[in-house]
């Protein structure tokens, strides 16, 4: 029912578009240009693309030096190498001095599949959200990815953009606006609020369809910015529906669910449940098998919705 496309391809298209209209952009990668797709930018603008080999720490600090001099920088690698491996370089060289470095991390989450736990980054959002000055963006599809990449090039301060490896359904509209810190209502309902991020937004939509069969009218929100999170949107829909489920392809600790539960508990303490990876490392398998094993299916979201609504009772 939906067209599918990888977010990496959208990232590559955005970079090429950016490169063709401005000369201050520099793209860095660490021996993964064909995987993260910066090779397409490199073919067109070879002078503006630097492959540093497998030296991510070096890459992040080089990015800082370029940005401090006035370049607009994209540094791209796999999420596992672009966060935990280089947390100190991001902290010291980039985030502390608030430099314009955009880290575009691909292959995030468990849907990486066969590569297994070493490559399935499930803690990156938590790490990046904990850094002052850092903005954390998790686009839900290729279209939104392209908009986000084009948006951050002029954004003042560092950003982290989290992308997956696989094809994802295109669920946003061409004319939908992307803005940092603004969530998007994908479906407006009155009974429960499902808040998803990244690959889980389409699964929330599928869960909403299932709930409809039980006469439950769900709101679905695409929370594409995790930090700063759209508090107003969370509060508004928590008040209207009185029950919230969050869904993310990330450790249940420190990601979207933690962020939303903080907002709820301080403002509108309604019943909620978090869907996410239950604080474990991943393993090899097919994407869909893994999503099922770790409880990240539309069915899991729908079940959580029933449970939360039960806890809420009739009163909103």
């Amino acid at each position: 029912m939906w067209n599918k496309k990888t977010q990496r391809d959208a990232f590559a298209e955005a970079l090429v578009e950016i490169g063709s209209r401005r000369k201050d952009v520099v793209v860095l990668t660490a021996d993964l240009s064909s995987s993260v797709k910066t090779n397409r930018f490199a073919e067109k603008f070879p002078e503006h693309h630097f492959n540093v080999g497998i030296s991510e720490q070096n890459m992040m600090s080089i990015a800082a030096g370029l940005a401090a001099s006035g370049s607009r920088v994209f540094a791209s690698t796999f999420a596992v190498f672009g966060t935990s491996r280089v947390y100190d370089q991001i902290r010291q060289s980039i985030a502390w001095p608030k430099l314009n470095v955009n880290i575009v991390a691909t292959h995030a989450g468990i849907t990486v599949g066969g590569d297994g736990a070493s490559h399935q980054m499930l803690e990156d959002v938590a790490l990046m959200c904990s850094l002052p000055n850092m903005t954390v963006i998790v686009p839900c599809d290729a279209l939104e990815t392209k908009k986000a990449v084009k948006f951050v090039v002029d954004y003042n301060g560092p950003t982290y953009i989290r992308l997956g490896r696989s094809d994802v359904p295109t669920i946003t509209q061409e004319n939908a606006l992307f803005s940092i810190g603004k969530a998007m209502v994908m479906k407006d309902g009155k009974d429960i609020t499902l808040i998803g991020t990244g690959t889980m937004v389409s699964r929330c939509l599928l869960a909403a369809e299932k709930l409809e069969k039980d006469n439950i009218d769900a709101t679905v929100i695409n929370m594409s910015t995790i930090k700063p999170v759209d508090e107003k949107m969370i509060i508004k829909y928590a008040k209207e529906t009185g029950a919230v489920v969050t869904a993310e392809e990330h450790n249940i600790i420190g990601g979207l669910g933690s962020m939303v539960s903080t907002v709820l508990s301080e403002n509108v303490p309604v019943p909620m449940k978090r869907i996410g990876i239950p604080d474990v490392f991943g393993e090899s398998g097919k994407s869909d098998e893994l999503m099922e094993k770790y409880g990240l299916t539309p069915e899991n979201i729908a079940e959580a919705a029933h449970e939360v609504m039960k806890r809420r009772g009739k009163q909103k």
Partner: peptide, 24 residues
């Protein structure tokens, strides 16, 4: 002050970034 430093080992990479910016 051209770069925020203190965590050892990062300034040389930052300097390479600045040198590359000059070349570009």
């Amino acid at each position: 002050v051209e770069a925020s430093t203190g965590s050892e080992g990062q300034g040389l990479s930052i300097g390479i970034g600045m040198a590359l910016h000059a070349k570009l």
